Measured scan of single mutants.
Amino acid sequence: VIAMPSVRKYAREKGVDIRLVQGTGKNGRVLKEDIDAFLAGGA
């Protein structure tokens, strides 16, 4: 999974398994917005 360390930390704090999140950034990078969208109700 491609993600910046700050995004990985954010996901950990929110209790999200970053491997389950679909990245929308360049080359499938997971963004902070992707974590929020995942929490809001889905992949």
Rank of each mutant, 00 (worst) to 15 (best):
V1A: 08
V1K: 09
V1H: 08
V1S: 08
V1F: 07
V1T: 10
V1G: 07
I2P: 07
I2E: 09
I2K: 11
A3L: 03
A3E: 05
A3Y: 03
A3P: 05
A3Q: 06
A3M: 04
A3W: 02
A3D: 05
M4W: 15
M4T: 15
M4A: 15
M4P: 10
M4L: 15
M4S: 15
P5I: 11
P5V: 10
P5H: 10
P5E: 14
P5F: 04
P5A: 12
S6M: 07
S6L: 08
S6P: 06
S6R: 09
V7Q: 02
V7M: 04
V7K: 02
V7F: 02
R8A: 08
R8S: 06
R8K: 12
R8P: 08
R8T: 08
R8V: 13
R8M: 09
K9H: 10
K9V: 08
K9M: 10
K9Y: 07
Y10S: 06
Y10E: 07
Y10Q: 06
Y10P: 04
Y10G: 05
A11D: 01
R12M: 15
R12Y: 15
R12P: 02
R12H: 15
R12N: 15
R12L: 15
R12I: 15
E13Q: 13
E13L: 13
E13T: 10
K14C: 10
K14A: 08
K14D: 01
K14L: 13
K14F: 07
G15N: 09
G15T: 03
G15C: 07
G15K: 08
G15F: 06
V16G: 00
V16H: 01
V16F: 02
V16L: 06
V16R: 00
V16M: 03
V16E: 00
D17Y: 04
D17G: 02
D17T: 04
D17R: 05
D17Q: 05
I18P: 03
I18K: 01
I18L: 11
I18E: 02
I18Y: 04
I18G: 00
R19T: 12
R19G: 09
R19K: 11
R19H: 11
R19E: 11
R19L: 09
L20V: 10
L20S: 09
L20M: 14
L20T: 07
V21H: 00
V21G: 00
V21T: 03
Q22A: 12
Q22I: 13
Q22S: 13
Q22K: 15
G23N: 02
G23T: 03
G23D: 01
G23W: 02
T24L: 03
G25D: 03
G25M: 02
G25T: 03
G25K: 03
G25F: 01
G25I: 02
G25A: 05
K26I: 13
K26M: 12
N27G: 14
N27P: 02
N27W: 11
N27E: 10
N27T: 05
G28I: 02
G28M: 06
G28W: 04
R29V: 09
R29G: 08
V30L: 05
V30Y: 01
V30I: 14
V30Q: 02
V30S: 01
V30F: 01
L31I: 10
L31S: 09
L31N: 07
L31W: 04
L31R: 09
K32W: 07
K32T: 07
K32F: 10
K32I: 13
E33Y: 08
E33P: 08
E33N: 10
E33A: 13
E33W: 08
E33F: 07
E33M: 10
D34A: 01
I35G: 00
I35E: 00
I35L: 03
D36C: 06
D36R: 04
D36G: 02
A37Y: 11
A37S: 11
A37I: 10
A37R: 14
A37T: 11
A37P: 01
A37G: 08
A37V: 09
F38I: 07
F38K: 04
F38E: 04
L39W: 07
L39I: 14
L39V: 10
A40G: 10
A40H: 12
A40L: 13
A40W: 10
G41P: 10
G41F: 11
G41S: 15
G41W: 13
G41H: 14
G41N: 15
G42A: 14
G42K: 14
G42V: 14
G42N: 15
A43L: 15
A43E: 13
A43S: 14
A43P: 14
A43T: 14
A43W: 13
A43I: 13
